[in-house]
Design a protein around this nucleic acid. Structure first.
Length: 216
DNA sequence: ACATTAAGTGATT
DNA sequence: AATCACTTAATGT
């Protein structure tokens, strides 16, 4: 139950326009606010998902992970978004096949999954939102597939840095080369070399644990 | 001062 | 584009 007026206002501001009053009231009565820190893992493959997360503030990255812990970044979710894969898990009552990590300190609104179906039947706005969310996720997945299949790694890296900067609203990206390599499913050495190349072209500036973009 | 972790580089596949 | 093996640089204790 969300009692705090400040939190209510925040929710209203971020997702209020999506739903009618009655549904918002229900959201207030069953939702929980959850704060997560940068780097915190919200969902792990194999875990049973029992809530639907909305991003109220901040952003998450969603990635695929294999048994060896190798990763591949799929897409990001930001304020007002929810995670389509979670929805799928809720409907089929299966376990998560993806990993979600906080890209910055973020605030989530979590809704227990048992309300999902009921709301789908009773609220057109909810139904539409869920469908719309699926649509957006799938488009982004397509974009990622295109990038993997058709772009060279240096182009992907460039896109990655720009996406990252846009999302976090900063030209400074605080990642190690190792972390970037993991997101792109490449190796650190290769990323270091490509970054060095970009630096000598004047596109970026390199610091320890940091990449600074020189505009877009 | 030393250990640890991040980043740079040549050579090889 | 990946991996190995090694060097150099930055940072924490």
């Amino acid at each position: 139950m969300i009692e705090n007026e400040k939190q209510k206002a925040l929710i209203k501001e971020q997702i209020g326009f999506l739903f009618e009053e009655a549904l918002l009231e229900e959201i207030y009565s069953v939702g929980r606010i959850k704060k997560v820190d940068l780097g915190q893992v919200i969902m792990d493959p194999g875990e049973e998902v029992q809530f639907i997360p909305f991003i109220i503030e901040g952003s998450l990255k969603v990635s695929r992970e294999n048994v060896d812990g190798d990763e591949l970044l799929l897409y990001y979710i930001e304020s007002g978004d929810t995670c389509a894969m979670t929805l799928q898990c809720c409907v089929t009552k299966s376990t998560s096949s993806i990993k979600a990590t906080a890209m910055e300190d973020s605030i989530l609104l979590t809704i227990p999954m048992q309300f999902m179906e009921d709301w789908m039947n009773r609220y057109a706005s909810w139904r539409q939102y869920i469908l719309e969310s699926y649509h957006v996720r799938i488009s982004e997945l397509m974009e990622t597939i295109d990038a993997i299949a058709f772009m060279r790694l240096d182009e992907r890296l460039d896109k990655y840095l720009k996406d990252q900067a846009k999302l976090l609203g900063s030209l400074e990206i605080n990642h190690t080369h190792q972390q970037i390599a993991e997101d792109l499913h490449s190796s650190r050495v290769v990323i270091s070399r490509l970054l060095k190349q970009m630096e000598s072209k004047g596109m970026i500036q390199l610091k320890r644990n940091k990449v600074i973009l020189k505009g877009f």
